[in-house]
């Protein structure tokens, strides 16, 4: 429904199995696209899904104007520190969250529209040596940062107007947290991966660190994307950006790993390797049980993680290699982007 709302007409173009090209937008002023995302936006009583694009110094908000026609609503200019990531805030309206920094995140800012002053503005949420950050439902933001030898893990609840309502400190693990992921359907549970290749679990209400479970040594530098609790087991979707492509067995872009959180030794009980596609994982995104990744071959591949099968492949086109693959919020489609600022929206 949301995809229909965005652009009702299909373009002629590549139809890669279960992916259908719906529309394209091109930021002609963008020299190097950094990230792309979507956000719910409500204006004049109308709520619609808008696209957000980011370059190093700008973040732009796009609205659907007509079939296959996107218009730039506003561009925030952030010239002091480069933009490196758009942080998705699920189910949140009229707020865009971005991470700025050089090699690592130094600032997290909210970009928003103020009806009081009838103007677009941005506000600072957090500064520091931020290693990982995730946006959660109900306008919550969790981040890990390092100051001297100390690691701080903190959840910030945001107000509708972009302020910080509440801050909760979470117990840090000894190892540096490299990524966070929400546990589907469990509002107070959060998982993370660590530099020591472990999965950790927190209670967000109490701040307790509940478990630390080692992933094993087969694939280092695991990054968590999503987790699900089912039948007493915790299933965690991991990617391995540092995994080397091997000719003999390929490189798994994602793995779904199951843990028994209450077992004394919560050993990995099973792991699903999605079907192999040429190229190793560069970066990607998971929504519900669908994983999408940009591969070193320049293609974007989409997997059904429950069945472990590859659902679609977008080969690199005339515009060159794909650089970005993101699910639209609410599963409204897949956004695939090139570095030149071209973004294709696909229905999945």
């Amino acid at each position: 429904d949301t995809a229909e709302q965005l652009t009702p007409v299909l373009l002629d173009g590549p139809r890669e199995e279960s992916l259908q090209l719906v529309s394209e937008l091109k930021d002609s002023s963008c020299s190097c696209a950094v990230d792309v995302s979507t956000v719910w936006w409500e204006a004049a009583g109308c709520r619609e899904l808008r696209v957000v694009t980011a370059s190093e110094s700008t973040v732009s908000l796009w609205e659907p104007l007509a079939p296959d026609c996107w218009g730039k609503v506003y561009t925030w200019h952030l010239r002091e520190i480069p933009v490196i990531q758009i942080i998705s805030l699920p189910d949140t309206c009229n707020l865009v969250c971005v991470a700025l920094g050089e090699l690592e995140i130094g600032e997290i800012r909210l970009l928003l529209y103020s009806s009081e002053t009838d103007s677009f503005k941005h506000s600072l949420v957090k500064t520091g040596n931020i290693k990982a950050v995730v946006g959660l439902k109900d306008r919550r933001l969790v981040s890990s940062s390092r100051a001297m030898q100390e690691q701080q893990v903190e959840m910030v609840s945001l107000s509708e107007t972009g302020g910080s309502k509440d801050r909760q400190t979470l117990m840090p693990p000894e190892e540096t947290v490299t990524a966070f992921a929400e546990v589907e359907g469990m509002r107070e549970a959060l998982v993370g991966t660590t530099a020591g290749n472990s999965v950790v679990v927190w209670n967000l209400k109490t701040g307790q660190l509940l478990r630390k479970m080692h992933v094993g040594y087969s694939y280092p530098a695991s990054i968590c994307h999503r987790a699900y609790s089912d039948s007493g087991l915790l299933f965690v979707v991991l990617s391995h950006p540092l995994a080397k492509e091997s000719e003999s067995c390929g490189s798994p872009a994602f793995r779904v790993v199951a843990f028994n959180p209450v077992a004394t030794s919560p050993v990995i009980r099973g792991c699903i390797r999605p079907c192999r596609v040429s190229g190793a994982y560069l970066e990607g995104d998971v929504w519900d049980t669908a994983g999408a990744a940009v591969l070193t071959s320049g293609a974007v591949a989409v997997w059904d993680l429950l069945q472990g099968r590859c659902a679609a492949v977008l080969p690199p086109g005339p515009a060159g290699h794909w650089a970005l693959a993101r699910w639209a919020t609410g599963g409204a489609g897949l956004l695939a982007g090139h570095r030149d600022g071209t973004v294709h929206l696909y229905r999945y």
Binding site: M171, M186, E188, A189, V201, N203, T206, Q208, L209, L210, R211, S229, S231, G232, L233, L234, N260, P261, V262, A263, T264, S265, R269, G270
Partner: peptide, 23 residues
């Protein structure tokens, strides 16, 4: 895997671990 392979399973693992973990 059989249940014995997995060890004891708790459907309320989150509540159980929260009751046991240090505050």
């Amino acid at each position: 895997c059989s249940e014995s392979d997995l060890g004891p399973i708790s459907l309320n693992w989150f509540e159980e671990l929260s009751a046991e973990a240090p505050p």
